[in-house]
Structures are given as structure tokens and as C-alpha cells.
Lab assay of single mutants.
Amino acid sequence: PDDEWKERLREAEEKNNWKLFEELARKAGVSEEKIEEWKRRWS
């Protein structure tokens, strides 16, 4: 299951679909801290 969400995150990233990325990350149990960090790195 871990690989599956990583794959989906990669797809979201490729499409630059931040909303989807964020949603998937939350569902995968990624901390808000980590998500914010990704946001900063991404923008």
C-alpha cells in the first residue's frame, strides 16, 4: 500500500495538482509539518 500512495503522489506532482497531492498525503498519514515543508519547497 505504501508504494501505491507514493505512485499517486508522483502522479499528482507531475500534473502539478497540489490539492490532490495534499489530500493523498493527509490520507497517507503525512504530518502537516511535512506537508507545509513540501509546499514551501514546491512553490
Rank of each mutant, 00 (worst) to 15 (best):
E11Q: 06
R26N: 02
E22K: 03
W5D: 04
W5Y: 05
W38A: 11
S31V: 03
E11T: 03
K19F: 11
V30G: 00
E32I: 05
E4K: 06
D3R: 06
R10S: 07
W42M: 05
E37L: 04
K15A: 14
E13K: 15
G29N: 04
R8G: 09
D3M: 08
K15E: 12
L20I: 07
E11R: 03
R10C: 13
E37I: 04
K6M: 15
D3T: 08
W38G: 00
S31I: 02
R10A: 09
L20P: 03
E32W: 06
W18Y: 04
R41K: 14
N16A: 07
R10H: 08
E11L: 05
K34S: 08
E32P: 09
E11S: 04
K39L: 10
E13W: 15
K39C: 02
E4H: 07
E37S: 05
A12R: 01
R10K: 13
E37Q: 05
R41S: 14
E33T: 07
E14N: 08
D2Y: 13
W38K: 02
E36V: 06
F21S: 00
E32F: 04
N16L: 09
W18M: 05
A28Q: 05
K19I: 12
E4G: 09
E14H: 09
W18P: 01
K15H: 12
E36Q: 12
A28L: 11
W42V: 04
N16E: 07
E13N: 10
E14K: 11
E14W: 10
E11N: 03
W18G: 01
E23L: 06
E33H: 06
K15G: 11
K27H: 11
E7R: 08
D2I: 10
R26P: 00
L20V: 09
F21E: 00
E36P: 00
L24K: 02
E13P: 01
V30N: 01
R26K: 09
W18A: 01
W5Q: 02
R40S: 13
K6N: 12
E13C: 15
K6L: 15
D2P: 12
E4F: 14
E32Q: 10
S31E: 06
E23T: 07
L24S: 05
W42C: 11
R40M: 12
D3K: 08
L20T: 06
W18E: 01
R40T: 11
E7D: 12
R26C: 10
E7I: 08
R10Y: 10
A25Y: 03
K19W: 10
E7A: 08
V30K: 01
R8Q: 13
S31L: 04
L24Y: 12
N17M: 10
R40C: 10
K27Q: 14
K27W: 13
K6P: 09
R41P: 02
E23N: 05
R40N: 13
V30R: 00
R26E: 02
E23R: 03
K15N: 13
L24M: 09
W38F: 10
K15Q: 14
E13G: 12
